[in-house]
Every structure is written in structure tokens, then in C-alpha cells.
Design a protein around this nucleic acid. Sequence first.
DNA 1: CTGTTAGCGCATTCAA
DNA 2: TTGAATGCGCTAACAG
Lengths: 360, 360
Amino acid sequence: MAVTLADVAARAGVSSATVSRVLNGNYPVAGSTRERVQRAVEELDYVVNGQARALAAATSDLVGVLVNDVADPFFGLIASALQSEIGVGGGQPDAGKLAVVCNTGGSPEAELTYLTLLERQRAAGVVLTGGAVEDDAHTAAVATRLARLARSGTRIVLCGRPPLPAGSGPEAATIAFDNRGGARRLTEHLISLGHRRIGYVTGPQGRSTTRHRLEGHRAALAARGLGPQTRAGAHAEQLIVHGGYDRGAGYDATLELLRRDDGITAIAAANDTVALGVCAALRDSGLRIPEDVSVAGFDDLPFGVDASPALTTVRIPLQDAGARAGRLVLGRVAPPPGGVATVATELMVRGSTAPPGGSR
Amino acid sequence: MAVTLADVAARAGVSSATVSRVLNGNYPVAGSTRERVQRAVEELDYVVNGQARALAAATSDLVGVLVNDVADPFFGLIASALQSEIGVGGGQPDAGKLAVVCNTGGSPEAELTYLTLLERQRAAGVVLTGGAVEDDAHTAAVATRLARLARSGTRIVLCGRPPLPAGSGPEAATIAFDNRGGARRLTEHLISLGHRRIGYVTGPQGRSTTRHRLEGHRAALAARGLGPQTRAGAHAEQLIVHGGYDRGAGYDATLELLRRDDGITAIAAANDTVALGVCAALRDSGLRIPEDVSVAGFDDLPFGVDASPALTTVRIPLQDAGARAGRLVLGRVAPPPGGVATVATELMVRGSTAPPGGSR
DNA sequence: CTGTTAGCGCATTCAA
DNA sequence: TTGAATGCGCTAACAG
């Protein structure tokens, strides 16, 4: 049915080995035969069988990218940058690898299943993006899978999640985000504006990102004497509501926060999407932003500047991180010393935060 | 290095053929040997080599999904739904196929290159999403590529773009969006609110989506006697500015529109993202939405309801469409009669549009 | 520089 | 019900 190497060889009057050499350009081939072969390839519209090639050469053109949610621009930006680095866009025209985007939906089972599927395909590399599920059993299961993958030559890169527990096996280059530091600076910003009763809407429970951001928030409170053990911060923990990463979570959590303390003057959200939900709930409650309540997000996704007012947030250089993950997973750059690179986050102050006391 | 079928066979004391049969469950195998084999598989942590299997069985676990921009939720929503239909989420636990997401960036060359890469991988199916580049040469090139793919057994699905020119070869099931109808209803909505000087910011030139939406807009104007050939609509064409699908395009186009006619009372945008840019430009120009200028988008992406005011737009059931594309590409459902299904779009009226004459 | 020869790991005939 | 043999299409030694 399909044209094979042998067909091309026959047409060009050479052996299939020669055709292979012309195609791969790894061995010297006489100019004249090369031309004949190339002509035959074009005449026959020959396209190599990647699976056969992979089998014979023990290589692969696939790179797996695990994301929690493709529809979330957070992951979209990472995946996009990663792909243009490994795929058709970035590198050599021919050597493009294909990104297999695996949408785990945050499900640990799906994560493991996808790792198995990628192992089946003998993927050249696997990139795990976004916050990790913090469950010892699951972490161990992932580490085991990754170790096996690494042993069979698959490069492993972690992007936006903490490194694997030391000694758990595989060497995985890690690009970690400074979520803790970013969250801390964000809350410090709110405090220095004069806010004292600051609500916090977390991400989904049991995720590393959620935990780190919350830790940063608490650290900032504690450093300014607003921790739960102080008089001023006696209710600090009550102003933390657990949510998810979607808009609805921000909306609901905000109503809950207002119920718990209608004197809140600022709310920090787990991410920008949640922050939009927070804004919507505040507006629906008749509160103005930032006059009545300041709002802050996290990630600095593109839509944040279009919110009204523009969202104060913490910028993560997602595209840089994704591109770097792409280079790492191809082995085009050396892994960072110690295997872990932490990318800095940057506070972006915009219109949604202001000193408290606008009018209530 | 890696465990192979032969290793499992040896351990179980059977032939590799038997192991294969157990794994695939296609042939009768005695219960006792089945168990022995399964135990051996587990003990050895055996994972089939997908490439070898694909080569031998002439099958593939890969489905290619071409998108213009992964970071755009428009495509993210489609891809997400599609993937949960074909992948780990939707179907049988084991039969999950992997989605290869190919980010073309709207580049025709990239599109062709990816089709070649997918042909190399002998993908089980290919889904082309989003507006098509309208260039005869390119359309023909794509059709040729698709025809070859189809001939070698790859299923082709078009989602969100018009069907291939009739007789151009491959049988591709198509899920088309009623962009024209949606745009028309949207502009009719603006007209019926009382708007007469309506700006329009198009998407990138030379894309089917751009053209169809613009046609719908023009049709609505013409139907209400506001076409360029009428007195009332003499300047109608001047109020159309060509842009792109990003926020910046909306911003710039809006400034240009205001320059051309500062009496504009409504602006329709190519999509929701562009509409946000439009809103930003209007606000920066000191205009209120919708009192001074009404704004409308297209697509109904999730962030639209969080804009302030919430964005009037046209809803496309992207998730349904993506899921359906997934079922089609797996052959799980029969293609629609005629090969083309047009999904309806729905006008979503929200706060960003209102009668003109608020205050200027 | 080029042809010949072996596999890569698996599915699938054909026999038994 | 099972095993042995063959080939999927290609790359990589090994000769020449």
C-alpha cells in the first residue's frame, strides 16, 4: 500500500541501505547517487515510517507533556513555548519532534496512565508541568514510573513543580517556580498598602502549588506580626478559604469570606482565574475594586491586564520556562547545577490593589 | 535493556505468541496459562513496545490535532474535550489513544510540515481545528496531504473549518461552525438596539473564520439597509478594520476606528480576546462601555463573563464540537450525512451592549 | 562509497 | 489451545 524504502531503492537502482543513508545524511554518499535517490523519493512521494525507524534505531520522535488542563492558558503558554522549541518551529526543519499533550485533569490515576502510555511509545522525553499532587503514595508511584522511563533513555523534566524527593531514583531536571516567594511579596504588598484583614482563596488542596503559595502568604503575615498567634491576626486562619483553580471557586469563596468577615479589605487569590471570580463576587455584592476591596491574582495570564481594574498579580515567566523545558528535554542544554533551577516570580502591581478605606 | 515479550514468555514458560495473545485478548487462551502469563507480566513490569506493535499490526495509538494556538482557550477547549474523548478519560482504560497537539501558529508551512510528521507516525487520525488559511495553493496542498493520509487509513476530521473543496479527494468528516449566522445575528442585535455606526474589527486576513464572520456582519447591515450601497451605510466599509486574533489587535484597531469616526456607538470584534482589547482601548480613550460604546465579541470563552461589563458574544459549543470530533476520528460514530455537520451558534446578550446615546 | 545481512519487538499466519 | 516461523519497514554493523 504505502511506499517503502525498498520501493525507493528499486526505483533509484540502489540498495535500501543507501536510501536510508541519503535520508538520514549520516554517512557519505556519492553526489550522483544521492541525487538519484532524492529524485526517486520525490517521484514516489515517499514518507518514512516513523515507527519502523524508531524500532530499528531505538529512537523516538515523541515528547510527552503532561498538563493539568490544556484549556487553561497557564498550561497553554507553557505547552506552546515548549512545542515551538522542540517542534517544527524552533529547531532544524526535519528533526522536529511531536509533543504529545496529555491532559490529566489533575487526576493522579490519569497521570500514571499517561506515563504508561508514554512508556509504551518509548517517548524521547516527558515533561511534567504544573503543581504536583502531594500524596506520598502517588509521589512514589510517579517516581517509580519516571525511574523506569529514565532508565530506558527517556529524558525527564519537571516544569512548575518541585523536584522529586531526593534519592527517589530518576534524574529529572527541574524548573521550579518561586511560588512561595511570589506569594509572600504579594501579601507584603497588600500589608504595606495598609491592609490588615486579608482574605485568601487557595487552589485545590493537596497540590504543591497551592501549598507553596499559601505558605508564602502566611509567611508574609507572620513577618508583619499578623500571624494567627498574634492579637492582630487572631482570625488570620479564618480568612483562608480553600477552593479550586476555576472562576467559580473564587466566586463562592469570596461570598464565604464576606460571610466570615465583612470587614475584609483585600483578597488574594490562588491564581488569576480565581481572582476574576473574586472580582465578580465582590461586584455582585455591591463592593468596588479597589476602593472597597483590593484583589490580587497569581500567574499574570494575559487576560489579567484586561480585567477592570487591571489585576495586580505575580508574574511567572511561563513561556521562558516552557521553552527551557523544551531545550532540557531534548538535551540541547545541560541541566542546571543540582538539577534544579528556580525561576523568579515578579510582583506586578496594577489597578486592582490600593490602600484600604475607600469608602465603607 | 527493556523487558520484551520474549522475556515474559520465558518467565511464564510459554511462547511469545501466547503472551501476545493474552495481552491482546483476541485469541482463546487457556485460563491457567493466561494467569501465568499475567503474573509474569506483572513481575517483570512489562510494558509493550508501542512502536513494534504498531509496525507489526499496522496500527497506531496517535491522533494528531492541529491547532493554531494552544495557548488560546478557543483551541484549548476543543483539544481538551477531544482528548478526554479519545484518551485516558473517555474510553476503555487500555485503548486510550494519545493526542499529538501540533501548534501551527497559523502558518501554512507549519501545517504542512506537521501533516508530514503525522504521516510519518502513521497516525490513526488527524483533526484539523480552527479557521483554514484561504489560499488555493495551500488548500490544494493540504487536500493532497490529507488524501494520502486517508488512503493509508488515517481518519480525517475537520473541526471549526469549512469542508474541503468537493472532489478534492479525501473523505473528511467536517464539523463546521455557523460563524456567518452567528455574526449576522450579533450585528442584527446591535442594529435592533439602535446602533447605526458600527465598527468591526476582523480577525487575521485570509482565514475562513475571518471571512465568514465578516460576511455575516455585512449581511446583517445590508438586510437592514445599512450596506455600503445605501446612504445610511455609505461609510460602512470604512468602519471595518482588519486585525488579528490577539488583544493588541483589538486595541490598535479601536484607536484606528475612533480616528476614522468618533461617532461610532458599537464595535463588534473578531473574537472575545480581541473584544477585550477593544474594551481596553475604549476605556483608555475615556469612553464608557456600554453607555458610550457597545462592544461584542465572539466564541463565548469563559473569561468573557468576567469582563466588566460582561461581554455580549456568540457562543460556539466548542467542547461539544471537540468531543464529537474525537468520536469521529476514532470512528466511534458515523460521519454526519453529507460528511458535514454545522453546529449552531448562539447569541449571548450581556452587559457590554446597550442602546446607544448614553451620554455623548 | 555501496551492497549484504541481521535484527529491532511484536502480531500473525500455519501447523501441530 | 499452543508453538514455530515469517515479516512489518527500517537502521546499523560488516564486508567489499
